[in-house]
């Protein structure tokens, strides 16, 4: 199936997309995120299904402390701003802005994860509330854990971008990895809004 050296084919300009159109990879990323979003949709559906089935007990965390989740929400929303800042930077060709934005975002992401870990450990150690202690525990740790996993993946993705940015891999024209990481990060943030509402705020209204 190999091709003789020097054989030539004709290439159309539009074969690789028009300038100004979304790139192939952008579309790929969109559908990938859509599929990921459905993972969360299913998880949330399962959460609600089980919550409704256990209608008698209210699914509220033992410590019912809203400070940490609110702080974490603020952190994540802030990180969405900073990652947008990074993206705008590289779209203008400003690598410095990119590096600053990415660093801040990764830092905020790490803070979020520390906050989550703190909440988890205090729940498990102090309240004896764990994945196996009750069905609510199973649902709570799975949902927040899945989201935490995605934050971790997103942060690693951003970190890879950061390393590459310091090595000068990105320019105004070529920075798809950054764009993808940015999309992914925004996605993770939006998911958090659903998670936090479902887990912390909905029980308040019951």
């Amino acid at each position: 199936m190999s091709v003789a050296h020097g054989e030539q084919v004709r290439v159309l300009e539009e074969e690789h997309g028009q300038v100004g159109e979304r790139s192939l990879n952008w579309w790929g990323m969109v559908f990938f995120i859509a599929s990921e979003a459905l993972i969360f949709a299913n998880l949330i559906a399962a959460y609600l299904y089980l919550e409704i089935r256990n209608n008698n007990d209210i699914w509220q965390l033992p410590h019912s402390n809203l400070f940490l989740p609110l702080l974490n929400t603020a952190i994540l929303l802030g990180s969405s701003v900073s990652v947008h800042f990074a993206g705008t930077g590289i779209r203008k060709g400003n690598v410095r802005q990119l590096i600053i934005g990415l660093s801040v975002t990764i830092f905020l992401g790490a803070c979020f994860l520390v906050g989550l870990a703190y909440e988890w450990t205090s729940l498990i150690a102090d309240e004896h509330f764990s994945i196996s202690s009750s069905i609510f525990g199973s649902a709570f740790f799975t949902l927040t854990g899945f989201h935490g996993l995605h934050v971790t993946i997103g942060a690693i993705f951003l970190a890879v971008c950061l390393v590459r940015a310091t090595k000068g891999h990105f320019s105004k024209q070529q920075h798809f990895a950054v764009q993808a990481a940015e999309m992914y990060w925004h996605f993770v943030d939006v998911v958090w809004l659903f998670v936090v509402t479902l887990v912390y705020f909905v029980p308040l209204f019951r």
Binding site: I39, A46, R53, I131, S134, I135, S138, F141, T142
Partner: peptide
Amino acid sequence: PSLTVASVLLLLDRHMGAHFYQYGSGGD
């Protein structure tokens, strides 16, 4: 994604002691 979620929950039941599909513990 539905299959992935179903499988993950079952794996958690099997190996982490979760109760998603266990009727007696509030699962279904």
